[in-house]
């Protein structure tokens, strides 16, 4: 399996560490209230199919990457830098 790092290009899966669902990018506002925070902390969708995950290019460039992929077919639809930066960095 190869993952396309926005900075390094297509790289072997072994260079990456998977954190799991890209939940941290949807952190509720501080004052979002108990329901939103309860949902954020405890409820997981765990979809069989299209899923957005956080991957860390650990032995590569050390970027955090959002990988949108199908957890059933392993097809990768999209990868992008998790901080939304469009500049590949120097």
């Amino acid at each position: 399996m190869r993952i396309t790092c926005p900075i390094c290009g297509a790289r072997d899966r072994r260079e990456f560490t998977v954190k799991g669902a890209a939940l941290a990018l949807e952190r509720p506002a501080r004052d979002a209230g108990d329901v939103a925070w309860d949902d954020y902390l405890h409820n997981r969708d765990n979809p069989a199919g299209r899923s957005a995950e956080l991957w860390y290019h650990e032995t590569g460039c050390a970027a955090w990457i959002v990988v949108v992929r199908d957890t059933v077919t392993h097809e990768v639809f999209e990868t992008r830098l998790a901080d939304g930066d469009t500049e590949a960095g120097s």
Binding site: C8, E58, T59, G60, C61, A62
Partner: peptide, 11 residues
């Protein structure tokens, strides 16, 4: 040049 793993070492 590339950063990658070399025999499981960061290289």
């Amino acid at each position: 040049t590339a950063r990658s793993e070399l025999a499981h070492m960061a290289a």
